[in-house]
Amino acid sequence: MIAASFDYSAPETLADALRVLSDDPEAKILAGGQSLIPIMKLRLSIPSQVVDLGGIIDLHAIAEEEGIIRIGSMTTHEQVEHSELLSEKCPLLVAAASGIGDVQVRNRGTIGGSVAHADPAADYPAALQALDAKVKVVSSAGEKIIPIDEFIVDALTTALEPDEIITEIHVPTESTGIGTAYETIVQPASGYAIVGVAARIGLSEGNISFARVGITGVGSKAYRALAVEKALEGQPAKDDTYGIASRVAAEGVEALEDLHASSEYRAHLATVFTCRAIAAAAGRAQ
């Protein structure tokens, strides 16, 4: 629980931070530190240098522009949870943020850090999948905007290159007529989701006209439950529909297994919470 020695830098501009990264390939970015610091204290990670992005003011803003909400990567979970703009225009993200860890974690942890870490049980990725979110990354070579399902490659593995920094997360402003919900069951020790399901449901004349379902905690990475979405679209908005569609929530996914949940239980929970999230979202869409 005592970290090995490391250098520390706190650049005040993105350009400075990128320079440090390209000069030192063993450097690690420190966002909120909620995953990095514990593994450093266990000496499972011994970076040569920790680059603290906390001083880069540009990375802290939340702004809306042409139907897109740009969330600075250093925005804390607490700031997302209590953002008036997001509460009004992207309540799904607010719901996901408010369930992350505990108050202390939410006060420090950031959306950029969470996405970069790509923990398979993190709450954000499910919501971001359902929101068709995009990740803006910047390197000295330029910038890229990557859809979330391309960004998260595997467990704890992303498309982020060592010399790149996530600067923004882009989510759409929610259309009228769409209801959203995030339903989760957490592992009581860590607070991570055993299963977390984010749903966005649009209704038209009593039928489901639009469905997005993102699921975290079940597989090696958060995923869009495409089979569920397909089973919902065009169907009447009623409990039977949700129940039948939810049955395929974990289809084709190799459900993880740990001390707290077997893969069978996880796969089962995926169906239960998918159904609950869809029903809650549909309820709000009406």
Partner: peptide, 25 residues
């Protein structure tokens, strides 16, 4: 409903941190 120190058959501690050992909050 929460707490249990778990060891593997080889006597390895599997709940070595509060990420896996759940004390009530």
């Amino acid at each position: 409903f929460l707490e249990e120190v778990v060891f593997s058959e080889d006597g390895q501690l599997l709940t070595g941190t509060f990420m896996d050992y759940a004390i009530p909050k």
